[in-house]
Design a protein around this nucleic acid. Structure first.
Length: 293
DNA sequence: CACCCGTGGCC
DNA sequence: TGGCCAAGGGT
C-alpha cells in the first residue's frame, strides 16, 4: 500500500477558516433539522434550500409537527425546491419517527437508513453531522474531491463504485471528532473550491498534493455525461400540474389539471395518473384534483 | 444497472 | 444560448 500525502491536516485547517455559517450546522442544531436539511439538499443548491428550511423549522420544529400537518401542506411548503416526492417522504419519515422512535431522530445510520427517503448518503450524513458519529459520508462533492486529489481524473465515473467507497473509508480519519470535520470539510471544499466546472485551484489547500493538478489538470476525457433533457418531458408536465395545485386553495377540474400540464394527450393524462399513483395528487369525492390531504 | 423524479442558475 | 450541474433515492 503506497503512502499517500496527508490531506487531513490542510483540509481541516482550511475548513476552520472557510466553513460557511449554515443554520443546520449551528450549535443548537437538532437531529430533525439536520435530517430535513439533508433531504432538501439532495440535488438542490444551498441558496435555494435556506429560506424553505427556515420556514419548515419555524412551522414544524419536531417530526410530529410535520406529521400532523400532512402531505398536502408539506408539498405546498416545499415550494419550488424540485422533486416534491421528497416532501412526501419526509412526512412519511416523520410519522415513523413519531410512532416508533418517540419523536426523536435516530442517531445511528442503520436505523436512519430504514426511513423513507433516507439512503446511504443521507443516513451517514445525519449520523455524522447531527450526532457526531464516525461515518463514511460520500456525496458528489466527496467523490469529486477524492477523485481529483488522490486518483487524478477531472471528474469521477458516472456511478459510485466499491473502489470509491473503499478509498473514502481509508481516507476517513480514525479519530471520531476529526472524522466528522473531515466529512464536512471535504463536502465544503467540493462545494466552494473543488467545483465541477472552473475549480478554484489557487485557493485549494490540497493544491500542492493534488494528483489531478500534478498531472497538469487534464480535462475530463471519459464518456460524455448525459444531460437530462427537459423540454417536453413528463417531469416538466408533472411539475406544472403540482405547481398549479400549489397555487390553488381549492381543487382543479380534470380539464384544468390537464391544461396546466402544458402537455398534449396522451402525455398529460399519463402524468396526472402518475401523480395520483405517487401520492402527490388526490381526487376528492366530486372528482376534483387536489394536493394530498 | 438504467432510468425516473423538478427546478433554476451559471459559464 | 443551452448543456451542465446541484449535500440522491427509489425502483
Amino acid at each position: 500500500m503506497p503512502e499517500r500525502p496527508d490531506l487531513t491536516g490542510p483540509l481541516l485547517a482550511w475548513f476552520d477558516a472557510h466553513a460557511r455559517d449554515l443554520p443546520w450546522r449551528a450549535a443548537d442544531r437538532t437531529g430533525w433539522g439536520v435530517l430535513v436539511s439533508e433531504v432538501m439538499l439532495q440535488q438542490t443548491p444551498v441558496a435555494r434550500v435556506l429560506p424553505v428550511w427556515q420556514e419548515w423549522m419555524r412551522r414544524w420544529p419536531r417530526p410530529s409537527d410535520l406529521a400532523a400537518a400532512g402531505p398536502g401542506e408539506a408539498v405546498r411548503a416545499w415550494g419550488r425546491l424540485g422533486y416534491p416526492r421528497r416532501a412526501l417522504r419526509l412526512v412519511a419519515a416523520a410519522e415513523v419517527i413519531r410512532d416508533e422512535h418517540g419523536d426523536e431522530v435516530p442517531a445511528d445510520a442503520e436505523t436512519l437508513r430504514a426511513l423513507p427517503g433516507i439512503g446511504e448518503y443521507t443516513a451517514a450524513a445525519v449520523a455524522a453531522f447531527a450526532f457526531g458519529r464516525r461515518e463514511v459520508v460520500v456525496d458528489t462533492n466527496v467523490r469529486r474531491v477524492e477523485a481529483r486529489a488522490v486518483s487524478g481524473p477531472a471528474l469521477p465515473a458516472p456511478s459510485y463504485s466499491a473502489a470509491e467507497r473503499r478509498l473514502a473509508t481509508e481516507l476517513l480519519p480514525a479519530d471520531r471528532e476529526r472524522s466528522v470535520r473531515w466529512n464536512a470539510a471535504t463536502m465544503e471544499l467540493g462545494a466552494l473550491v473543488c467545483t465541477a466546472r472552473a475549480p478554484r485551484c489557487g485557493e485549494c489547500p490540497l493544491q500542492d498534493r493534488c494528483a489531478w493538478v500534478a498531472a497538469g489538470s487534464p480535462p475530463h476525457d471519459g464518456p460524455p455525461r448525459r444531460g437530462q433533457r427537459w423540454e417536453g418531458t413528463d417531469r416538466q408536465a408533472r411539475g406544472r400540474i403540482v405547481q398549479a395545485l400549489r397555487e390553488t386553495d381549492g381543487t382543479l377540474t380534470r380539464e384544468q389539471a390537464l391544461a396546466a400540464s402544458g402537455a398534449p394527450e396522451p402525455q398529460a393524462e399519463r402524468c396526472l395518473l402518475g401523480l395520483l399513483t405517487d401520492g402527490l395528487v388526490e381526487q376528492d369525492e366530486a372528482g376534483g384534483f387536489t394536493l394530498p390531504q
